[in-house]
Design a protein around this nucleic acid. Structure first.
Lengths: 187, 187
DNA sequence: GTCAGAAAGTGATGTATGTCACGGGAGGCA
DNA sequence: TGCCTCCCGTGACATACATCACTTTCTGAC
């Protein structure tokens, strides 16, 4: 199970077995059932999560009760409410399981200690943060420049497996269109 | 001039004068006039830029010739086409001066060398990348959940100085609405 | 197998926003 | 002064999309 993390980290840096076994001790494994919350809007956010298997959604619910999906976190994704996590403030988002999931958790303190002990890991996280930033920018561009249909096609192209795994209602909440509009696009 | 960079870095980490003077040698200063391009869509992106003074826009021009603004880079901002910069591919965006600007430039090679020589700087860049990611996520949320008027008011609140510095046409291109719609919001 | 709830399609209608066209004002420059 | 360009406002009209209401299909629990 923890081997998934090793494989993932070694896509970017190389580690000895000893190093990795020490690194892995900064994490702990937790299993969640479909529907369970890892983070609830308004509560503390003690961990950042790494998805070994399963699928999560990061959502923000507005005053009118409408759910907006900031991201789907699949295998090999890091996710949390980063602002709340780093600043120790209350979550502005919720993180919820769409499937039964195996998750590695790391606390803020352990995260800092890990980076101090292993500068290579800081390098690893920098690359992850950078590519996350690039991906967000791409999404902003698609929201600025594409209509609903183009955004939908782009999503299918980038994550073809998603359409099998989540109901269209959720894809709509990710794309920023109504369920009905998305339904009419397909026809 | 280079002191702006020192002050900026020291908001996050602390450096001796010697360390900083060595760090600063990885950068060089360049002045740009209003209207000049730091990056042109379709060309190489040899540098990441730090804005000492002035104002830039990071834009993507679509097939129909319409400009979309990914960000305004003001004093103390780091900006480039990150994807093109890190992967040494051609720029998908342009970076252009909205005012005469003083800019520090760092090449990819120097960036890597700087991070290797000064792990503290890697830590600094990690924090910057993280907060950039958080800010992008906030922007995605506002595009998903707010209408044009709310987005405009949010922008004014976050960057009240912008409205003095850039024409409304550009604010519209940032918010993802037409110039005309934005104009009608104010009335 | 039955039933309740979720998911998905679809019609009618309302609305926010885009597009096109025009005019007026402010500022740079010969 | 006159001219040109950019910026901004505004009216008329088109359209993409939201919302509401209804129906059908699917699925999972018992």
């Amino acid at each position: 199970m923890i081997q998934e993390l090793k494989r993932h980290i070694e896509e970017i840096i190389t580690l000895t077995d000893d190093e990795f076994s020490s690194i892995s001790s900064y994490f702990f494994l937790q299993k969640f059932k479909k529907g369970e919350f890892l983070i609830r809007q308004g509560t503390n956010v003690p961990y950042t999560y790494f998805v070994i298997s399963g699928l999560l959604k990061l959502i923000s619910t507005d005053e009118s009760g409408k759910e907006h999906i900031l991201s789907f976190a699949m295998e090999d994704w890091w996710e949390t409410d980063y602002l709340a996590f780093y600043t120790k403030t209350k979550a502005k988002m919720s993180l919820q399981c769409l499937e039964d999931s195996d998750i590695l958790c790391i606390s803020l303190e352990n995260y800092h200690n890990l980076c101090s002990a292993y500068p290579l890991m800081e390098h690893f996280f920098l690359q992850k943060a950078t590519s996350g930033h690039i991906a967000s920018q791409q999404r902003i561009l698609s929201l600025l420049s594409s209509d609903a249909k183009e955004r939908y096609e782009g999503l299918l192209k980038r994550y073809p497996s998603l359409i099998q795994r989540v109901p269209k209602t959720l894809l709509a909440a990710y794309l920023g269109v109504s369920r009905e509009t998305l339904s009419r696009l397909s026809s």
